[in-house]
Amino acid sequence: MSASPVARQAVAQAQPQTIPPRRVTINSPSELPNDYSSTPGGTLFSTTPGGTRIIYERNFLMQLRNSPLARTPPKNLPVIPGVTAKDTETSHRENGTIVEEPEKPENADDSQFEMDL
């Protein structure tokens, strides 16, 4: 849970394979990403046992969300009332950006920091 992305990558590669891990040198804490789903150095591709795998971090996927290609309606989208819609307005307010979700319950956040008290 608390392992850094680099450490997780190292664990994933701890098997006897010849593909070397990608190493990112970090000189100061400010170079660390803000969340666990990002990799220092902005990794998009990584090598893993069994060959190269295409790895995308959440932030990168989110950036592509509003690219013109991603906004093009897919061909042959079946229209299922209440499930799919041709235009994004009906399906996702604000073009799918989840911002108006209710906030997480406070106790869920608090419990993570119990150890600090």
Binding site: R65, A70, R71, P74, V83, T84, A85, T90, S91, G96
Partner: peptide
């Protein structure tokens, strides 16, 4: 891109 194309049109 195609994932977002579908996902954005799903409720």
């Amino acid at each position: 891109e195609l994932f977002w194309g579908y996902y954005s049109r799903l409720v």
